Amino acid sequence: MTYKLISNGKTLKGETTTEAVDAATAEKVFKQYANDNGVDGEWTYDDATKTFTVTE
Rank of each mutant, 00 (worst) to 15 (best):
T51N: 01
N8Y: 14
A48H: 09
E56L: 10
K10W: 10
E42F: 13
D22V: 02
L12G: 10
A20Y: 02
N37R: 13
A34F: 05
A23S: 09
W43C: 01
T16W: 15
Y33E: 02
D40E: 13
T55W: 12
W43V: 01
T44V: 08
K10Q: 10
V54R: 01
T44H: 11
T17N: 05
T53N: 04
D47A: 13
M1L: 11
F52P: 01
K28S: 09
Y3C: 03
K4N: 05
T18H: 06
K50D: 01
T51V: 06
T11Y: 13
N35Y: 15
D40M: 14
K13R: 14
D22G: 03
K13E: 07
G38H: 08
V21S: 11
K4W: 13
A23M: 11
V39S: 03
E19I: 15
S7G: 06
V54M: 06
E42Q: 11
A48W: 07
K31R: 15
A34C: 14
T55C: 09
Y3V: 02
D22S: 07
G9I: 14
K31I: 06
D47L: 06
K4T: 14
E15F: 13
Y45A: 00
T44A: 10
A24G: 07
V29F: 15
F30G: 02
F52N: 00
A34K: 01
G38Q: 06
K28N: 07
K10M: 11
D47H: 10
G38R: 05
E42I: 14
T25E: 14
E19G: 05
Y33F: 12
A24K: 11
E27C: 15
L5F: 08
K31H: 08
E15V: 14
S7W: 15
A26L: 01
F52S: 00
K28D: 05
D47F: 07
T18I: 15
A48N: 11
Y3N: 02
Y3K: 02
T55P: 01
G9V: 13
A34E: 01
N37L: 13
T2S: 07
T51G: 01
A26S: 01
K4E: 03
A20G: 03
A34W: 07
Y33V: 06
K28H: 07
D22E: 04
E56A: 09
T25S: 13
T11D: 08
G38E: 06
A23P: 08
A34Q: 02
E19D: 10
T44N: 08
D46R: 03
N8T: 11
G38S: 06
L5Y: 03
D36L: 12
N35G: 09
A48Q: 11
V39Y: 07
G9R: 05
A20S: 06
T51H: 01
M1I: 14
N8F: 14
K4L: 08
K28V: 09
K28F: 09
K50N: 06
E56G: 06
T11K: 11
M1V: 13
A26E: 01
F30E: 00
T2P: 05
E27A: 11
W43H: 00
G9N: 08
L5K: 01
D46V: 04
G38M: 06
K13F: 11
K10I: 13
Y45F: 06
A24C: 13
Y3L: 02
V29L: 12
K31A: 04
N37G: 04
T16N: 06
G9F: 13
Y33R: 04
Q32T: 08
G41I: 03
G9C: 15
M1S: 13
T17H: 09
E27D: 04
K31G: 02
V21R: 12
A34M: 11
T18C: 15
Y45M: 00
Y33A: 03
Y45Q: 00
K28Y: 09
D36Q: 11
D36R: 10
T11P: 05
W43M: 04
D40G: 08
Y3Q: 02
T49Y: 04
T49H: 05
T25L: 06
T2N: 06
T44S: 13
V39M: 12
T51W: 02
K28R: 13
D47G: 08
Q32M: 10
A48P: 06
D22P: 01
A24Y: 10
F52E: 00
Y45H: 00
G38Y: 06
Y3P: 02
L12W: 15
T16Y: 15
T17P: 02
T25G: 08
G38D: 07
K50I: 02
A48M: 10
K13Y: 11
A23N: 05
L5V: 03
K10H: 12
T17S: 10
N37W: 12
F52H: 00
A34Y: 06
A48K: 12
V29Q: 07
N35A: 15
D47V: 09
W43L: 03
V54T: 02
E56V: 11
K31S: 03
M1Y: 15
M1F: 15
Y45L: 02
K4P: 02
G41F: 04
G9E: 04
W43I: 03
T49P: 00
Y3H: 03
D40H: 14
F52V: 00
A20M: 03
F30P: 00
K10V: 12
A20N: 03
V54F: 14
A26V: 02
V54A: 02
D46W: 03
T17G: 03
E15P: 09
D46N: 09
T16H: 14
E19F: 15
D22T: 05
T2R: 10
W43Q: 01
V39A: 05
L5Q: 01
G14S: 12
S7V: 15
T11V: 12
N8R: 11
S7Y: 15
T18V: 14
T55F: 10
K31F: 05
E27F: 15
I6F: 07
E15I: 14
A34T: 06
V29S: 05
Q32S: 08
E19M: 14
E19K: 13
T25M: 11
D22W: 02
T49S: 09
Y33H: 04
V21G: 08
D46E: 06
K28M: 12
T2I: 14
S7P: 04
A23H: 08
K50T: 03
F30V: 00
T16K: 11
K13S: 11
V21Y: 12
A24W: 09
V29W: 15
D40N: 13
T53M: 09
T18F: 11
A24Q: 11
N35T: 13
T18A: 07
D36W: 07
I6R: 06
N8L: 14
K13N: 10
G14P: 10
E56H: 08
G14C: 15
K10L: 13
Y45G: 00
L12C: 14
D36A: 12
W43E: 01
T55G: 05
E42K: 10
T49L: 07
G14L: 15
N8I: 15
V29Y: 15
E19P: 04
E27Y: 15
Y33D: 01
D47C: 07
V29G: 03
T51R: 03
G9D: 04
Y3I: 03
D36F: 09
E15R: 07
T51D: 00
T17Q: 09
A34P: 00
S7Q: 08
K10F: 12
Q32R: 11
D40A: 12
Y33T: 04
T25D: 08
K13P: 11
T53Y: 13
V21L: 12
G41V: 04
V29I: 15
T25F: 07
T11A: 10
A48F: 10
T11H: 12
K50A: 05
T53Q: 05
E42C: 12
K28A: 12
T25P: 01
I6G: 02
G41L: 04
N35H: 15
E56Q: 10
K31C: 05
A20D: 02
S7I: 15
T11L: 11
T44E: 10
L12H: 11
T17V: 09
N35C: 14
T11F: 13
K31L: 07
N37D: 03
E27L: 15
K31T: 04
T11Q: 10
E15S: 10
A20H: 02
D22F: 03
T44D: 08
Y33L: 11
T18M: 11
